Simulated assay, not measured.
Amino acid sequence: MADIANGIAEAARTAFLAGVGAVAFGAEKTTEFVDTLVKKGELTVDQGKDLNRELTQKAKDTVNEAQDAVLRARLATMSPAEREAFADRARQIASDMNAKASEDAGATVDVEVEVEAEDGDAEAAE
């Protein structure tokens, strides 16, 4: 039974990755097409930007829906206890990543600068 569930989860994962690749390829080709229309004068630059934004949002929505479907398929193969352990592990990973991001954002760099003053400048500095 576990082999079947793992097979289903792997198939869903593969389908998801193929979908993400297709969306990325489609977004790239769409951007090229919109740029071509702008160059030909069939679209204004602003219309092209708006169209790109709209298409990018649709692509993101499609990827999010696919991610949700893969996650649901994976969770469907788990027992309630396994789902709870998975959720706990996901929360811990998210917490670790948030802590790391906070450390990186708050990191400071100490820099020592030595300044040599000429004799005349030493009196002015005092």
Rank of each mutant, 00 (worst) to 15 (best):
M78Y: 02
G26E: 14
A85P: 00
A85L: 06
T56W: 10
L51Y: 15
D88Y: 14
K29C: 05
Q47P: 10
S79Q: 00
A76W: 05
S79A: 01
E82V: 06
N64Y: 04
D68L: 09
V23A: 06
R89Y: 08
E54G: 15
A85V: 09
R72G: 03
V63Y: 01
L51T: 12
A85H: 02
G21N: 05
F25A: 11
N64W: 04
A87D: 13
K58R: 11
T36I: 03
F86T: 01
N64M: 08
E42C: 08
D68F: 07
K49T: 04
V63S: 00
D61M: 06
E65L: 06
L55T: 03
Q57L: 12
E65Y: 05
A76Q: 05
F25I: 06
A76P: 01
V38T: 10
A69T: 01
E84P: 00
R72P: 02
D61W: 03
R72L: 09
V38R: 06
D46H: 12
G26R: 12
A22N: 13
D68Q: 09
F33G: 06
R83M: 04
R53H: 11
D68K: 08
S79R: 00
K49Q: 02
T30Y: 07
T36R: 05
L51K: 13
E28T: 01
A24I: 05
A76F: 04
A22T: 15
E32W: 00
V63T: 07
V45K: 07
V38L: 14
T36Q: 09
E54M: 15
G26F: 13
F86W: 01
D88K: 13
A69G: 00
R53L: 14
N52H: 12
A76V: 05
A22H: 13
A69L: 04
